[in-house]
Amino acid sequence: MLEIKDLHASVDGTPILKGISLTIGDGEIHAIMGPNGSGKSTLSNVLAGRENYMITKGSIIYKGKDLTELSIEERASAGIFLAFQYPTEIPGVTTMTFLKTAVNAQRKARGEDELDAVKFLKLVREKAKELKVEEDMLKRPLNVGFSGGEKKRAETLQMSLLQPSLAVLDETDSGLDIDALKIVADGVNRMRAPDRSMIVITHYQRLLDYIVPDHVHVLAKGKIIRSGGKALAAELEASGYTDLTESAA
C-alpha cells in the first residue's frame, strides 16, 4: 500500500522529519506514537500534500506510484484520507453541501457517475446514523461551533463516505471523552478491510485499546526509533517516552 523510504521533510525551512522509513501492507493498521514535537503531524501533512511541507530527501510510493507527484486533491481521489487533529471551521458552507461536493468530486476524478441528490441523501443518512451524527449537524456550517466530539464524528463520517484506501488518523483521540472516543473508534473499526490500511497517530496508548494496531512505531525527533507489535504501546504507557528519546539522542 505505502512505502516510505528515508523521508526528510521541512516545514517553512525547518527540518522536521529526518529519515523515516515505513512500509505498510494492505489491510494493516500501523500506530505511530511519540511525544509532542516528534514530527507525527508533519508526517500526516506530508502524506496529504500540504503545500508548505517540503520533502527534501527520500520517497513515498503509494500503490506503486510516486505520491509526491500528485496534488492534494489527486491524492484524496487516489484514496488517501487525512482525519485532522483540528478540523478547520468553514463558515458559510453547510456540512451537507461539503460532503456532497467532496464525494462527487472524487467520483468524477475516478471516472464514476456522480450521485444524485436522492441517492446521496440516503447514503449520508445511513452513515450518519451509525456515527450518531444528528441531521441538524449536517445543516450547520462545516465544523463551525461543533464540539470536539462532533468534529471527530464529522471527520469519521467523511471517512466512511469517501471510503479511502489509506486513512491517516491524526490524534483522533484528542479532545474526546471516553464515550465519544468509543463512537469514533467503532466507526473506524467498522471500516477495517483487507484492502484498506490505516495510520493511527497518537500521543496516548488509550486510543489503541479501541483501535488495535498490527504494528506500533515510536517517532522521536523526526525518526522512528523503535518498532514493534501492539505490546509496545502498553510498554510505552508504563515507561513513558523519556527513556526512549534519551537513548535515541
Binding site: S71, I72, E73, A76, I90, Q106
Partner: peptide
C-alpha cells in the same frame, strides 16, 4: 487552512 481542508477531501482547487 480551509482551502487545504477542502482539497484534502478531493475538491479541486
Amino acid at each position: 487552512d480551509a482551502l487545504f481542508y477542502l482539497r484534502s477531501r478531493g475538491i479541486e482547487e
